[in-house]
């Protein structure tokens, strides 16, 4: 099964679990499965229209899914999906 890596700041919503195995066939299904298992994650990952928030990036291996087929990007059994928060700000 494909593996989703949960970033440290969101692990409090996954009972401190760092990885989640998914049977989803694409990114959208994988994220749906993850948020279905851990409801508390939803508002941190998805906006009111259930799109991935602008300050969250999803990587498939080393590739930003925005450079692939976005949420329709197909995943394989050995895929590693990383949820990456954008760390940014300023004065």
């Amino acid at each position: 099964m494909a593996k989703i890596i949960i970033p440290t700041p969101l692990r409090k919503f996954t009972a401190n679990t760092a990885t989640f195995e998914t049977s989803g066939s694409n990114i959208k299904e994988a994220i749906q499965e993850l948020t279905g298992a851990y409801n508390g994650l939803t508002r941190h990952l998805l906006d009111n229209d259930f799109n991935i928030r602008s300050f969250i990036k999803i990587y498939l291996g080393e590739d930003d899914i925005n450079s692939l087929q976005k949420e329709d990007t197909t995943i394989a059994n050995d895929s590693v999906i990383s949820i990456v928060p954008i760390i940014a700000g300023g004065c």
């Binding site: 440290t8 969101l10 941190h44 700000g89």
Partner: peptide
């Protein structure tokens, strides 16, 4: 924060993650 106080800005808050 160059030449600004060490106070979190609205921009810092908007992008802040829990924990």
């Amino acid at each position: 924060h160059p030449n600004h106080p060490a106070i979190a800005s609205a921009h810092d808050l908007a992008l802040a993650m829990p924990y």
